[in-house]
């Protein structure tokens, strides 16, 4: 088995390495990937189209907004699939004994608790900054959402899963995850109602308090990123909470 795997891997790798000669050189600005009109358009026109300096945010939330919307839906479906898989699984007779490898003490440590109490508000504030400042610096809905989810996970690790789940019970985080997708889709549908294409934010300046269509694009990108952040943060916490407690949502790591 190992030999067959090794032969297959060496064959695949050799095929790719033999094609290395045709690759463009490292850092070639005129390689086919870099000189394609699409990426040139993104670099040149982002500022005039929406006034957002960070091209990655602009491409993510505006030009390729349809793609990002369904990526968010994929994350949501993955979270729901994890809950479903861990809940439905029945105990087969003759299965494993449910004894963890080692036990963790009951009372949680005072030093770790105090540090986390100091740290978690700062972390959440930083997450909101990353979400809101994604137009001008690296950041955006995905990164900020993951940091926000990580702050909840930190609370769950430091104080135990049960207190964290009392603050953020399952009903609430599933609802908030759906709210994120609803926010995203509602931006698209609003454009549709106002007579433009789906997720073409320019017309939204009739609804939003903005001066021009460019500014409306910029502001709608922020709204869309907030929706992404809702879904991603809640699904990250859901993944951790379900995986750490085998889907029972008690006990935990």
């Amino acid at each position: 088995m190992k030999w067959i795997g090794l032969i297959a891997v060496i064959f695949t790798g050799g095929l790719l390495l033999s094609a290395m000669d045709d690759f463009p050189n490292w850092g070639d600005a005129h390689s086919p990937a870099n000189s394609s009109p699409v990426s040139q358009y993104y670099i040149e026109q982002t500022m005039t189209d929406s006034g957002v300096p960070n091209m990655v945010t602009a491409v993510l939330a505006d030009y390729r907004g349809y793609d990002t919307m369904f990526e968010t839906v994929v994350v949501l479906i993955a979270g729901i699939a994890i809950m479903a898989i861990l809940r439905v699984a029945k105990q087969v007779p003759g299965g494993a004994k449910p004894t963890p490898a080692h036990e963790v003490g009951d009372q949680h440590d005072i030093i770790i608790g105090t540090t986390c109490r100091l740290l978690i508000p700062v972390l959440q504030l930083f997450a909101l900054y990353v979400i809101a400042h994604g137009h001008h610096s690296p950041g955006g809905g995905f990164q900020g959402g993951v940091i926000l989810g990580a702050s909840f996970i930190l609370a769950a690790i430091a104080k135990g899963l049960d207190p964290a789940l009392q603050r953020l019970p399952e009903k609430r985080y599933v609802k908030l995850a759906f709210v994120g997708v609803v926010i995203y889709v509602s931006f698209g549908v609003a454009c549709l109602i106002l007579g433009e294409n789906f997720l073409d934010y320019g017309v939204l300046h009739e609804l939003l308090p903005t001066m021009s269509a460019e500014e409306a694009r910029s502001h709608s990108m922020l709204g869309v990123e907030i929706g992404v952040a809702f879904t991603v943060s809640m699904i990250m916490f859901a993944i951790y909470a379900n995986l750490a407690s085998k889907g029972e949502l008690e006990g935990g790591l």
Binding site: H102, G105, D109, I111, T115, L118
Partner: peptide, 18 residues
Amino acid sequence: MLTSPTATHALMDAGYED
């Protein structure tokens, strides 16, 4: 300054309980 000593403490504590 805040996190690194706490992480060391947590690792030590986990090792002691282990």
